[in-house]
Design a protein around this nucleic acid. Structure first.
Lengths: 145, 145
DNA sequence: TGATATCCTATTGTTTTAGTAGATTATTAT
DNA sequence: ATAATAATCTACTAAAACAATAGGATATCA
């Protein structure tokens, strides 16, 4: 149940794009330097975000990536599910026919509640919120070393 | 972010033990038959639960396993963490020195909130609650086929 | 037309997952 | 005592997921 690098990197990458929303496109090279993530790996992660319709690309010189929608219209849930894949705490939540003892399976209820709790958090926060938090913490941070 | 079989199986196994709490010890063979889980694999899962002090074992004939504490005193969080390992949605939550940009990392806050939400659910439910739910659903279930 | 930056496909090493296999040890009932 | 029972311990394995790496193709701008 630990978060994959895919999701951690991808979330940081799309946050970089959100921070630049309305400005010029941001290139993979720039993001990978700022976030210290492998250029080539980041390529693949951003491709996932693009396939999900969350970011758009501009090819050629001075190209790069931009958010496909305003940050306020992108819930973290969308980003999370794109990168992490379907939650499916248990097979039977999405395919109730899978397990013959599903109907009387008390654990199933718990996994459902867990999923609801996770989605609750991720639905309540948008990229705009993340941007705000990010700018605030930048202002108040005292850099050590 | 999907739940491992380890955790799903283990939770069902300890629920079987909770259902028998106060009665004779339950054997692995019995649990594996009731829950349709590989005998040998279940052995390992229950060994983890034992190492965590959640269950006790009785060796020899008419031996088996029993809960180490009353069901009401075992939160699902304990079981979950034992099987799934430390949550650690991100390395820096447990080792803040890990990532140099942690202090101004807005995503970190989100992963923390996610962990809090998950723990919130798992702390609010005990094995006694699960037993109750389990018995209730058994009573009202209409079996098909 | 050359530089730039995305796009696409394949490959690779490592780790985790989900088991399987078999021998050993402790306990109980006969 | 001894035989049956059930936990205990250790090692092994196939398959999948993860975290990249590599290299060429394609589109676009100056």
């Amino acid at each position: 149940m630990k978060l994959s690098s895919r999701t951690r990197y991808g979330m940081r990458a799309i946050l970089e794009l959100a921070l630049e929303y309305g400005k010029a496109p941001l290139q993979i090279k720039t993001i990978s330097e700022r976030e210290d993530i492998s250029n080539k790996y980041l390529e693949q992660l951003i491709a996932m975000l693009k396939a999900a319709g969350l970011v758009r690309s501009i090819r050629g010189p001075r190209g790069g990536y931009i958010l496909a929608k305003p940050p306020a219209e992108i819930q973290l849930k969308e980003v999370f599910l794109t990168l992490e894949g379907p939650m499916a705490p248990a097979e039977c939540l999405e395919h109730p026919e899978y397990c013959p003892r599903c109907t009387d399976c008390a654990t199933r209820e718990i996994w459902q509640e867990l999923q609801d709790a996770i989605f609750g958090v991720l639905e309540s926060v948008t990229l705009a919120d993340l941007v705000e938090r990010s700018l605030r913490s930048k202002k108040t941070t005292i850099y050590h070393i």
